[in-house]
């Protein structure tokens, strides 16, 4: 479904991604792991079109997307939940969700709202509240719900567990599994490798912008060297 090959990305003069290749199959949950600053977020931003690569290709369902602007990529069915949630602080919950379905027809938007509220009932209660006034966990739920409003076929989550209490993290990951069961493919970026490998079937580990190891989650977890060198487990 998503095929990334030979990706090079630079921030100004500094190259941060080197010859990165990986793929995500239809219906899979794949994790992208690595230390802080390894280039995981940059990779997601490049797939979303916020950054354009200096070299390499990104193919989504047979179409090259590496030079498309973000709003066209969203239209093709890729949505991202950005790191730190990045909600609009002055928008209400309802407005945020409606904006998530910016490109959809009115009827689809209403249906999307129903889905979002049934997935996260707390958002329905807080629909008139400003996004900036929600708790951390509620904000993360809103960020995921916003991304789902675009009815993506591929959902990319950047550090969804960041700064949240363990109980809230469990709830978020339950939702991720629900979404996956509903047929949405998921690319998950996490620093919390243990957690990520529990939900993902396969994982890629990046180190300073290069692919270090990849494989099935079970194999990675079973490999003592990998655990020690990359996963901190």
């Amino acid at each position: 479904m998503l095929e990334v090959s030979g990706l090079d990305v630079s921030h100004g003069d500094v190259q941060v991604i080197w010859d990165l290749s990986f793929s995500v199959g239809e219906g899979e949950i794949v994790a992208l792991l690595g230390a802080n600053g390894a280039g995981k977020s940059t990779t997601l931003k490049t797939i979303s079109g916020l950054i354009h690569p200096s070299d390499g290709t990104i193919v989504f369902n047979g179409a090259a997307i590496e030079h498309l602007p973000p709003y066209e990529i969203v239209g093709l069915g890729i949505a991202q939940v950005p790191e730190g949630r990045r909600l609009w602080p002055g928008m209400t919950v309802l407005e945020t969700l409606l904006l998530g379905a910016y490109q959809s027809e009115t009827r689809e938007r209403t249906a999307g709202l129903d889905r979002a509220f049934s997935l996260f009932p707390v958002l329905a209660e807080r629909r008139r509240q400003l996004a900036g006034t929600l708790s951390g966990g509620e904000q993360q739920m809103l960020a995921i719900a916003r991304a789902l409003m675009a009815r993506p076929r591929l959902l990319m989550l950047d550090e969804p567990s960041l700064g949240l209490a363990p109980k809230v993290v469990d709830r978020i990951f339950e939702v991720v599994l629900d979404v996956s069961r509903a047929g949405v493919t998921i690319l998950l970026v996490e620093q919390n490798a243990h957690l990520a490998l529990q939900v993902a079937r396969r994982a890629y580990i990046v180190e300073t912008g290069r692919l270090a190891v990849s494989g099935a989650s079970a194999d990675l977890l079973a490999n003592v060297d990998v655990r020690r060198a990359y996963l901190g487990l």
Partner: peptide, 11 residues
């Protein structure tokens, strides 16, 4: 309010 988020929402 947040340009990147706006782009990610398809604006």
């Amino acid at each position: 309010q947040d340009r990147d988020s706006a782009m990610l929402a398809g604006i």
